[in-house]
């Protein structure tokens, strides 16, 4: 099963279980939750893709968090969950950067007989870099600003990225991040042009359709992460390229403006677009 681990804007506590997509919301343990930006948008996009293949469940391990306390609870729970989950694809998403958990995550994964395909975005990715465990991940899905952070060997958080990295081209940023062990070999860098790196090399770029407003809509990067996780989980070839393309096609169908909300965007992710993106249904 595909698992999504991250924090959500809900009261502090752990929320876990098999989630499904209903209407425009995620249903978890009988409760409907809005598919807003962040972890929920990723889970919702993954569910939308999986629905079309008759596999309608995603395991969600979520924590309500506004102070960092929820992230501690989440990571404690996650390291217990990992070895016995049976999940073959796991996404680490929004969370507080708690460097002390880096070694715990590495040790847990080292002890596992069969390691899942690990994807990190947002706080999960910041934690992996700051704790020096980027190498245990299989795929990062940064945006261009986060790629600059990964490239800066000294920055422990995107806020501390040296300004000089923001003017460098994405391939140079990826090279720096890889050289310093701050990114895995596979990257899907989201931006006006999406850059896909496989095995440490630039593999493909996706630049069309151009949907300018997508950059400002909170959650359109999270949906790429959810889509790529679902396609990888389904064993789709060229999953990063197809995820980037599918996200853009969804933006085109939505007719995105700077006012578009992510819930509307996710609602437009449909089977016809999967075929158009080259994903065989």
């Amino acid at each position: 099963m595909l698992a999504v681990i991250g924090t959500v804007p809900m009261p502090e506590g752990i929320y876990e279980g098999e989630a499904s997509f209903e209407g425009s919301s995620i249903k978890l343990n009988g409760v409907l939750l809005p598919a807003g930006m962040g972890t929920m948008a990723s889970a919702a996009a993954a569910l939308r893709v999986l629905q079309h293949f008759g596999s309608e469940r995603v395991y969600c391990l979520l924590a309500g968090d506004r102070s960092g306390q929820g992230s501690s609870m989440l990571l404690e729970k996650a390291v217990h969950y990992l070895p016995c989950s049976g999940s073959d694809t796991i996404v680490l998403h929004y969370m507080f950067v708690l460097i002390k958990y880096g070694e715990v995550i590495r040790n847990t994964l080292d002890k596992m007989k069969s390691k899942p395909y690990l994807i990190a975005d947002a706080g999960g990715m910041y934690l992996a870099k700051a704790a020096g465990i980027a190498g245990v991940f299989d795929l990062f899905t940064p945006d261009s600003g986060e790629m600059a952070f990964l490239a800066d060997p000294k920055a422990l958080h995107p806020m501390y990225t040296s300004p000089r990295f923001f003017s460098l081209p994405i391939p140079d940023l990826a090279e720096s991040a890889l050289k310093h062990g701050n990114a895995p070999d596979n990257l899907l860098v989201k931006g006006r042009t999406d850059f896909i790196f496989a095995g440490g090399k630039l593999n493909k770029t996706v630049g069309s359709p151009v949907i300018t407003a997508m950059e400002v809509i909170g959650g359109t990067g999270d949906t790429v992460t959810g889509i790529v996780a679902a396609l990888q989980h389904l064993g789709i070839k060229d999953f990063s390229y197809k995820a980037a393309l599918l996200n853009r096609l969804t933006g085109q169908k939505t007719g995105c403006t700077p006012r578009t909300r992510i819930g509307e965007f996710i609602g437009n992710l449909d089977p016809a677009l999967l075929e158009k993106a080259g994903v065989e249904v």
Binding site: T7, V8, P9, G36, M37, G38, T39, M40, A63, D65, R66, G68, G70, S71, H93, Y94, M95, F96, V97, D121, A122, G123, G124, M125, Y126, D143, G145, E146, P158, E215, V216, I217, G218, G219, T220, G221, P258, R259, T260, R261
Partner: peptide, 20 residues
């Protein structure tokens, strides 16, 4: 404020939904 995007810390979705 019509949209807020990016970030990865846990309070960002809450802050975004509150100020948007």
């Amino acid at each position: 404020i019509v949209n807020i995007s990016g970030g990865g810390c846990p309070d960002i979705p809450y802050v975004a939904q509150t100020v948007t």
